[in-house]
Computed example of a mutant assay.
Amino acid sequence: MTCKSHKKKDFLAKIFAKPNQTVATIILLMAGIAAIARWYIFHIELKYNLILSLISLIVLSSTWFFFRWLYSYFDKIMPYDRGIVRRLVLQILVSLVFVLIVTRVVFLIGSSFIVFQTTIARESTNLAQLAGISSEILLVFLLNLAHFSYYSLQQWRENELRASNLEKEKSQVQFDNLKNQLNPHFLFNSLTSLDSLIHENPALASDFLRQLSRVFRYVLQSKEKGLVNLETELHFIKNYIALLQTRFGDSLKIVFGISKEALDLQIAPVTLQILIENALKHNIANQHTPLIIKIFNEDNCLIIENPIQLKKQVETSNGQGLTNLISLYSFLSDKEVIIEQTEVFRVKIPLI
């Protein structure tokens, strides 16, 4: 949907946000226009014009109350989704008959109390009668159009909300899948490292196992959480980095620059793990070309950047990590996840 159509919907939403005030304004406006037309076109005297204006207000108000009842009744027995054309045609016919009847009845009652038959005889020309009937038909069409527009707006709102909720649920499910899998390659490599450490350095193997258990405990504990504070995420990521450095050694360097003020701000769980994993997946990390990943905060954003030193061949990936992260944050924050690629690859995550 274009920006222009969104503005149109927002405009309609404002109009129909207070329907009673809107209708009262329309009724007064129509009665005023009719009074001006009677004075300017038919030159009706002021006192008679006031009487006719009062009759107009009574007709318009009673018509509106009748329409509210009629629409409510039709909503129960003949909703729009069962046939819009049939509903509108029947609705227009019934409301038009009501307007024609109530106009005549009110006019007859009014003229019996106040004598201005001479004026009626003089002004009740074919043109005047045609103008009166035309205004009544126009009133009916306008009321039905307004009601159908209101119905359409409500349907649009519900569909937009439903679509937004479905997208959010989809993004959350995809992100949960990322958290649950925690990269099988990482688990395999960690277990391989643990196997070799058990024989070479049992004490280090024991420490490695504790860190591995902390990593997976965090993933399990954060499974039901939408957000965690940055300090908690940093505790987790430091355990994760310790496991990585058992494998990479000096080939991987992580530099932190997080201010104390940012520690209480929130972030989606395992965001840093996904971004570090993404950097290792696509970039060379060895003794000759160590991979240096910087993690720091700036302007309520967490920034993760690394030099671009791409591998010739990237390990198998579905390429959904960053995509799902961007989608999730679009629901968590008004700010977007920003990806920049110059001399370095930089991702800016909004802190919430």
Rank of each mutant, 00 (worst) to 15 (best):
L244I: 11
E261D: 14
S251Y: 06
V219W: 05
I293H: 04
D250Y: 10
Q245F: 07
R217W: 00
K223N: 12
F296T: 03
I276S: 03
N278T: 03
L280P: 10
E261N: 13
K225Q: 12
Q245M: 15
H235M: 05
L263W: 01
N229I: 01
G257P: 10
I284F: 05
R247C: 11
T246P: 08
A285F: 04
H282L: 06
F236G: 06
V228M: 01
S251I: 11
T232E: 10
I267Q: 03
V255M: 05
P290S: 08
K260N: 15
I293D: 01
A262Y: 08
L252A: 11
L291I: 13
D250V: 14
F296G: 06
V255D: 14
R214W: 00
L272G: 04
F256W: 06
A262N: 11
R217E: 10
Q266V: 08
D299M: 09
I254D: 07
T232W: 03
T271P: 01
Q273F: 02
E298M: 10
D250C: 12
P290L: 03
L280Q: 10
S259Y: 04
Q266R: 10
N239E: 02
K238F: 00
Q287P: 06
N297I: 07
H235Q: 14
S222Q: 09
T289P: 11
Y240P: 09
V215P: 04
I276V: 11
F248A: 08
I241C: 01
I241M: 04
Q287F: 09
I284A: 09
